[in-house]
Design a protein around this nucleic acid. Sequence first.
DNA 1: CGAGTAACGGACCAATTCGGTCCGATTTGG
DNA 2: CCAAATCGGACCGAATTGGTCCGTTACTCG
Lengths: 160, 160
Amino acid sequence: MLKVNRKSEYALMTVQHLARLPAGTVLAAQQLAEELGVPEDLLAKVLQGLKRAEVLQASKGAGGGYRLVRTLAELRFIDVIGPFEDHMAMVSCCETPARAAGSAMCERAESCGVRQPISALNQLLHSQMAQLTMDQFLKGGGGAGLRSAAELAAEASLVG
Amino acid sequence: MLKVNRKSEYALMTVQHLARLPAGTVLAAQQLAEELGVPEDLLAKVLQGLKRAEVLQASKGAGGGYRLVRTLAELRFIDVIGPFEDHMAMVSCCETPARAAGSAMCERAESCGVRQPISALNQLLHSQMAQLTMDQFLKGGGGAGLRSAAELAAEASLVG
DNA sequence: CGAGTAACGGACCAATTCGGTCCGATTTGG
DNA sequence: CCAAATCGGACCGAATTGGTCCGTTACTCG
Ligand code: FES
Ligand code: FES
């Protein structure tokens, strides 16, 4: 039901690791991989993804590496794992509007009565992930964070 | 990030379809598959799973088939999709206690700082799915249902 | 009692996805 | 210029998933 892939987990580990060091510390992918105990080449991809998502800042050349650009309070959970989760929809036929353009729609989309409920539920959970900050997540898994997010969703009246 | 597999979707469709008919209606797998427009053999597996989960009741032989045993208000979202989701944990190394017995633990479970937050977050979302009833889900994706579940989680003080 | 009907369950297969690797190109600092 | 580092695409094997097939069991109706 719920699953984040390895890349996302490595991303979370990376952010947490960097956040523990003095602010602005620069670490090379190689060193980071060693300290985290994860395959170096794969982590490299993760770091590139995090840079593209503007979570990290990269500097090339000798003495270069990656550093955090935001504090944990400014980082959202979804910012960190988002770049590595391509199927944000719960089912293949309920794609997000962005991806729906390319792929063909499910042929029984109209008759299928669960499509809309699933889509609504997905939107709700997505908004919770977008509300949850990384520091909330890292201390306690976001119990408090998700609660307020759910309240927000209720206010937004996603329920029919 | 979030994904239910096809079987789960078929399960949801089945429950909804049966719930629309007069209570206690019995439908054969063959007929059900035709009405829903899904592969018959695969739906058969789904129905068997739902029966094992005590969501449906099966009767063999001529004139047999499946019928709902609970009302939508008594059915929880997780009851319906649970039998088809084997990885209830967000990451492979954060297995649920039940499954953790068989599979080997992640070797860097101790040093990994995101294991516990992820586990807590997973538990929270799991409890939300367990709170959400099928009728809440089917009308609106569970905005109201999830809200109360989140409050419950906050009371249970999953947050450190 | 027997034929037909439908659930049951395990084996099996193809396609996709995923975790991981390799390697060449590019930028940058010393 | 050279070494260190990011960058990014191609590639691969393994695991998962969606889907099929077939034989067995159990039940109902005639
Ligand atoms: S939308 Fe395709 S089957 Fe539900
Ligand atoms: S627990 Fe295994 S790496 Fe997080």
